[in-house]
Amino acid sequence: MNRVRRTFFTQAAAGVAILSLAPGFRLVELAVGKSDDEPVSPSVRWGMLVDTSKCAQGCTACVEACNEEHGLYGFGRAESDAQWIRKMELRDEQTGKTHSLPMLCQHCADPPCVDVCPTGASFVRDDGIVLVDKHICIGCRYCMLACPYKARSFIHEELNNQRPHAPRGKGTVESCTFCVHRVDKDLTPACVEACSAAGHGALIFGDLNDQRDPVAQKLRDLPSTQVRDDLKLNTAVRYYGI
């Protein structure tokens, strides 16, 4: 019921938008809408800007939101427990300046994990999200060796009580999905939402290819960096302030 109503609203609103604006002008918020039977579009590239000047030391709202959203839970074994997003504390060895920032899958355009995966289970979706197809992952962990960001986790135990929208199980590799199940419903990732709710607003999510999208505008205006830019992986997560 809700679904039908929503689709109606989206389409109606889109119609209004198209009617009311000059050609070539679109309302960004509505343009990203995609119906359920439509494949994701390569014209979109989802990305994130991390404004480290707003990221608070000691705050782990994004991590907790991620764990909650995907039903990640630990077994009290930090070395093998799943970690899709983690807070890193940095201190410049020369100047002493400190930074706090979240580290997660950087959703590279040319990801090493995808290159090395023997079965093609690691792949880049058309809209730039790097995913693991757990149906064909054989659990060789080569992608984990290849990832420069240590963004991937191997599931070391049998799991129970998974969330319906976040299937995950023993013997396969997983990592941040940019909350693909939410993105497909035009929602932002859980970490981004939690960061806003915590009053920091350090994470901005959107379509990097859409010049009218706030994230694209910010990235155009602010100097941002890619982590390990020497590798030329063209990451979709960019950092400001480091």
């Binding site: 019921m1 049998e158 998974q162 319906p164 929208h165 035009d186 939402e193």
Partner: peptide, 28 residues
Amino acid sequence: QCHAARPEPSAMLTNHISITTADLDSAR
């Protein structure tokens, strides 16, 4: 082994994968 074998309780109210009003509100 990976997929949840039962719907989440909220599914009873929201027709499961359909979006809730709260979701819509929190959308950008």
